[in-house]
């Protein structure tokens, strides 16, 4: 299935969000995720099944004003 991660196309057969994030190499707790523009709490990563065409945003702290 095709999904977008931070605007880039990825192909993955991983079913749930937790597994996909692991596959992509995200670890630790300094990031947060939205799927199709909606926030997904960390506690829901394992239950959240991904679908073809889903758009993920994975964000981390940056400097800001």
């Amino acid at each position: 299935m095709e999904i977008q991660v931070n605007g880039e196309h990825k192909v993955s057969d991983t079913g749930d969000l937790a597994a996909l994030l692991k596959e992509l190499g995200y670890s630790g707790e300094a990031f947060a995720v939205a799927v199709n523009g909606d926030f997904v709490p960390r506690a829901q990563y394992t239950q959240r099944q991904l679908q073809h065409g889903d758009r993920l945003d994975v964000v981390a702290p940056v400097v800001g004003g």
Binding site: Y26, A32, V58, V59, A60, P61, V62, G64
Partner: peptide, 16 residues
């Protein structure tokens, strides 16, 4: 401070 898209290889988030 803020949040922006970051790949897993980027360390700015961790350093900040």
């Amino acid at each position: 401070l803020s949040l922006r898209r970051q790949g897993p290889e980027q360390q700015q988030g961790k350093m900040l």
